[in-house]
Amino acid sequence: MEEKIRFTLNGKKTEITTEPNQTLLWVLRNQLGLTGTKYGCGTGFCGACTVLINREPSRSCMLPVSDVAGKNVVTIEGLSRNGKLHPVQQAFVDHDALQCGYCTPGMIMTAAGMLLKNPSLTREQIIEGLENNLCRCGAHTRIIDAVETAAKEMQGGK
């Protein structure tokens, strides 16, 4: 049975009609055209599908869309403001923290969520927080550096 589901998506009020058990991942990708959020495993193990739900990094591939009713969802497309990259995005560019780029949106959303909660993350905390996001190209060392830089930037440091 289809239902109307309302939530805030990248700052905009959004209403969709869908069966409530459809996953947020495919609703975003297929129904709402936001394809920056990636499918990597569909079973919660890779993190490519990570979005922020009420500021919390969440895996959209296992999440029924009805769960986000009334909540605030941010995807990779909603992270930059008026063409200005979010500090984490900018740091990924500056550190060249990507190769094929497929894991990148999930990495950035996870890191951005972590920094929302605690902008003064240590390197160890960054590693721990990203541990369950997988990257096969091996961009890890630069991703850690990038998130460290973004953390400094967000604390207003240099």
Partner: peptide, 21 residues
């Protein structure tokens, strides 16, 4: 030189096959 496609990839704009419709 850094990856010339980095900006597209960090904003989710880069189109992989599965992103086409």
């Amino acid at each position: 030189y850094k990856h010339s496609d980095a900006r597209l990839k960090v904003t989710g704009q880069a189109k992989y096959t599965g992103d086409l419709k």
